[in-house]
Nucleic acid binder design. Sequence first.
DNA 1: CAAGATTGACATATCAATCTTC
DNA 2: GAAGATTGATATGTCAATCTTG
Lengths: 153, 153
Amino acid sequence: VTSDEELSAGQLTAWRTFMEMQEVLRGRIAALLQADSKLSNADYTVLVALSEAADGRMRAVSLSYALQWEKSRLHHQLTRMCKRGLVERQCGVGRASIVAVTAEGRAALNAAAPIHSRHVRQLVFDRLTKQQAEQFAQISRTLLDGLRHDLSG
Amino acid sequence: VTSDEELSAGQLTAWRTFMEMQEVLRGRIAALLQADSKLSNADYTVLVALSEAADGRMRAVSLSYALQWEKSRLHHQLTRMCKRGLVERQCGVGRASIVAVTAEGRAALNAAAPIHSRHVRQLVFDRLTKQQAEQFAQISRTLLDGLRHDLSG
DNA sequence: CAAGATTGACATATCAATCTTC
DNA sequence: GAAGATTGATATGTCAATCTTG
């Protein structure tokens, strides 16, 4: 369907509810993470990606691609994280810049991860039936695939 | 359920997919809105709230409550929107500050709304079955109610 | 004093422009 | 020249502190 009609009343309500839920959820999770672990969502995302990479190191450009972040956004974020000792920049061959998790960064992530997971479970999965959780996953996957498909077209 | 166990593998995947979808979707919608109408998501949200109020005016504190925004966030946002002529501040009784949508603000919203709605339909509802759209609405409502309930407890 | 408004500092996100090195 | 890195400008969001007025 690609008509020119606008949203139905039900769709509009659904969209507004989703937007509000998404904003409140993101804010709550971010506040809990900050309070528990002094990490922002962005910090946590970068630390997870790096710690899951072989050797805890990645080329900056690969990280940018993996996270689907603007290179500039990643650069600014890494600069802030370097200052706090969570990651460090290393010299790669040629123009490549390598970023690596530090021991301190790993420790922060290890301390944060279980608490963060528990909050996600409490705020999200404990509130959904098993069936709803599956629908939640399926819908998210469908929408994400659609969004990615738009770009390649 | 309120055990101390962490997320299952399936839940972790679902959560990451949701977070990524939500970020990409928000970014895409924001970019389209900006490109089409020179409005940010925040601008649009404020304009919708004001234009749905009687007379296009609201007390700042009511708007802050309705949007569930920090008063400071709202203040900064209104300052920016005033500068661009989208809204104006008026003096209410006593300490109250009133904010009103301007003719220019209304025009911007009226021009933006149908295009924005079409994009939401294309990026979201055209990609979900009717049943999935209902699940999407139901899950969003459930999670939002849970988040709100946390605060009152 | 208390509700509400304002301010400033800082963190984060986006964009465009520039620098560097192959 | 092009990939990749860096920089700076501007917009946005959060917090704590302060101002103002009933």
